[in-house]
Amino acid sequence: MSEAVSALGGAAYDGAVRVEDAGLRGMITLRGDLCDAALRAAVRDVTGLDIPGQRETRLDAERGLVWMAPDEMLILVPHAEAEERVSALRTALGDAHVLCANVSDARAVIRLSGAGAREVLAKGAPVDLSPAAFGPGMVRRTRLGQVAAAFWMTGPETFEVVCFRSVGGFVFDWLVAASAPGSLPGHF
């Protein structure tokens, strides 16, 4: 069986900040009633994490939960585990009205790291990215330039940016352009 490949094939760039392919990531879209006790329990059983609140993330080294919408959660797992986690969730949730789908290959994940990472994102996202307004534990779905994207922080100076796979190369190139040496505004 052939190995899966990420959309960006390990690309990386060092400029004002580092821009790199974050590689394969298992992702599961879960739509349902996020307040439902059975659903919350099933998610905890399968991921070991509690469902986060509005626009919040719960991340550990390998797994994560990202709040996407009032009825939608993005579950992060190792890529190879995605199918079995989907099955496990479906089993655990039984007949409940939920939608659970493996979307691991539908997206590109780009890691942005460095002191200027906030400023690079703020060149394209119409979001208050000052440390007072956005920090680890939060997620923001918005646009980056002309493309829909979501991002969250995995450390004080590190972001993960997620976009659809078909525009992964475009977003990567955009981030590279926005990370040109000498281009940080020095605002935050």
Partner: peptide
């Protein structure tokens, strides 16, 4: 125009 020029003028979706 900002960053949106040359190859970044408009996103082009690409298949695998």
């Amino acid at each position: 125009g900002g960053e949106a020029r040359g190859p970044l003028f408009k996103p082009t979706r690409k298949t695998p």
